Amino acid sequence: MEKDKKIKLGISIGDLNGIGSEIILKTFEDSRMLEFCTPIIFGSVKTMSFFKKHFESSINFHGINHTDEIVDGKVNIVNVWKENVNINFGEEDLKIGEYSIKSLEAATNALKDNAIDVLVTAPIHKHNIQSDSFKFPGHTNYLAEKLGGKTLMFMITDTLKVGLLTDHVPVKDVSSQITAELINEKINIVYKSLVEDFGIRKPKIAVLGINPHAGDNGVIGEEDDKILRPTLEAIKDKMVYGPYSADSFFGSGNYKNFDAIIASYHDQGLIPFKTITFGHGVNYTAGLSKIRTSPDHGTAFEIAGKGEADNGSFKEAVFKAIEIFNSRQEYDEYSKNPLKKAPKRLEKQTRPRDK
């Protein structure tokens, strides 16, 4: 990337009846954000103008019809649709779900074609998006199919990173899905991401047990002893430790001793993560050749349209996408020429403070 070129940051608009558009507006009302990236919202000038008026936003848009019309220093909106859309804040609406998918598909295609450098996704409603043509449980599975590669839901902050062996899987199916192959796959994704995306040269990884007390030597389930322990023992050269009993791992502060933690299932990892970091955490899809982040919350229908949404996690998702992009550039540069001094990364203290 040329030195004077801003990172092109694509944004899918999410569920229009939720808080997605509000947190996008609040983030880019601060013109200092344009010093870090060029935002490209995939949606509609008409729709975003409705939100601008509703929330009395001071933001200015640059409407375009194609990504080759993107202008640095502007908040660009690609017109994915041009018709008026009926917005009813807080309501579940399958028609609104269709617009979520139109935005996501257009943004993903732009990412795949290198028209944008990174993608930040506003929250979608998992029920509203289901249709005959879209049968994915969420962003992660869709992006894995469209962009290729094995993926991992990686919840991240500067000081805490939690990956999942299984993500949007019913609890009753968790143990049957955890195999030695899956464990190896997810650990390899976490390890590679820590090195390439976060600049941690010798990462230390903890893995949480599947059952309470990591099975208690088979008293509370055999999966930890028969599947998890032998698999971890075989790859201990990667500084992978566990399985640890999940109930005390975070409360004891043990998580601070590791660069990343891998939980066996969704709530085992996300409950402590969100308890510790809520409002500042980011959902990152590790394992893709492209970079995608999102806030760590959902559509928040209960407060949609009221102007009460906190954009902290969305803004953090923007910065994390930029930082990971820069880290990958730096890693690639070092790989080609280990003796060459890498460019200084975007440091957190250079970010604009909230007004």
Score class of each variant (00 low, 15 high):
residue 25 L to Y: 08
residue 315 K to T: 15
residue 131 S to T: 15
residue 111 L to T: 10
residue 162 V to I: 13
residue 267 D to K: 12
residue 253 G to H: 02
residue 178 I to A: 09
residue 109 N to M: 09
residue 212 P to T: 11
residue 273 F to T: 08
residue 135 K to L: 07
residue 92 E to F: 06
residue 164 L to P: 05
residue 331 Y to S: 07
residue 125 H to N: 15
residue 66 H to K: 13
residue 135 K to D: 14
residue 303 I to Y: 05
residue 345 R to P: 00
residue 2 E to L: 12
residue 213 H to G: 07
residue 336 K to A: 08
residue 123 P to S: 14
residue 325 F to E: 06
residue 340 K to F: 00
residue 63 G to T: 01
residue 165 L to E: 10
residue 145 E to F: 00
residue 328 R to I: 01
residue 262 I to S: 10
residue 324 I to Y: 11
residue 40 I to D: 05
residue 282 V to E: 07
residue 135 K to N: 14
residue 37 C to S: 15
residue 8 K to F: 09
residue 113 D to F: 03
residue 43 G to H: 01
residue 120 V to T: 12
residue 152 L to E: 07
residue 166 T to K: 10
residue 256 K to I: 04
residue 81 W to T: 02
residue 347 E to V: 04
residue 292 R to W: 09
residue 67 T to D: 05
residue 10 G to F: 01
residue 328 R to F: 00
residue 23 I to W: 11
residue 304 A to Y: 01
residue 266 H to C: 04
residue 283 N to R: 12
residue 159 T to M: 02
residue 247 D to I: 07
residue 18 G to K: 07
residue 147 L to G: 11
residue 74 K to C: 14
residue 115 A to P: 03
residue 74 K to L: 05
residue 63 G to Q: 01
residue 70 I to E: 03
residue 323 E to N: 05
residue 345 R to W: 00
residue 320 K to N: 12
residue 326 N to G: 12
residue 307 G to E: 06
residue 158 D to T: 09
residue 326 N to F: 05
residue 313 S to Y: 11
residue 38 T to C: 15
residue 150 K to P: 00
residue 262 I to H: 08
residue 19 I to L: 03
residue 247 D to R: 11
residue 230 P to L: 10
residue 245 S to P: 08
residue 265 Y to T: 03
residue 115 A to W: 04
residue 78 V to M: 03
residue 297 H to C: 12
residue 156 I to D: 02
residue 274 K to A: 07
residue 185 E to P: 02
residue 327 S to A: 14
residue 32 R to F: 03
residue 191 Y to V: 00
residue 107 A to L: 01
residue 85 V to H: 02
residue 189 I to S: 11
residue 71 V to S: 06
residue 291 I to T: 05
residue 180 A to S: 15
residue 278 F to T: 09
residue 311 N to L: 09
residue 268 Q to K: 12
residue 346 L to E: 01
residue 338 P to H: 03
residue 85 V to L: 05
residue 9 L to V: 03
residue 7 I to M: 10
residue 41 I to H: 06
residue 166 T to V: 05
residue 75 V to A: 02
residue 320 K to Q: 15
residue 197 D to S: 02
residue 314 F to C: 13
residue 217 N to S: 10
residue 108 T to Q: 13
residue 310 D to E: 15
residue 350 T to E: 12
residue 320 K to I: 06
residue 264 S to F: 08
residue 77 I to R: 09
residue 97 G to M: 04
residue 262 I to A: 10
residue 37 C to A: 15
residue 187 I to K: 09
residue 31 S to R: 13
residue 350 T to H: 12
residue 312 G to P: 13
residue 129 I to P: 00
residue 186 K to S: 08
residue 95 K to N: 13
residue 272 P to Y: 13
residue 55 F to W: 06
residue 17 N to C: 02
residue 34 L to D: 06
residue 85 V to T: 05
residue 173 D to K: 08
residue 16 L to I: 12
residue 70 I to Y: 03
residue 65 N to H: 10
residue 140 T to C: 07
residue 226 K to H: 14
residue 89 F to H: 04
residue 87 I to S: 01
residue 241 Y to K: 02
residue 30 D to M: 04
residue 254 N to P: 00
residue 225 D to A: 15
residue 314 F to P: 14
residue 326 N to I: 05
residue 163 G to A: 15
residue 40 I to S: 07
residue 7 I to K: 05
residue 80 V to E: 03
residue 44 S to K: 02
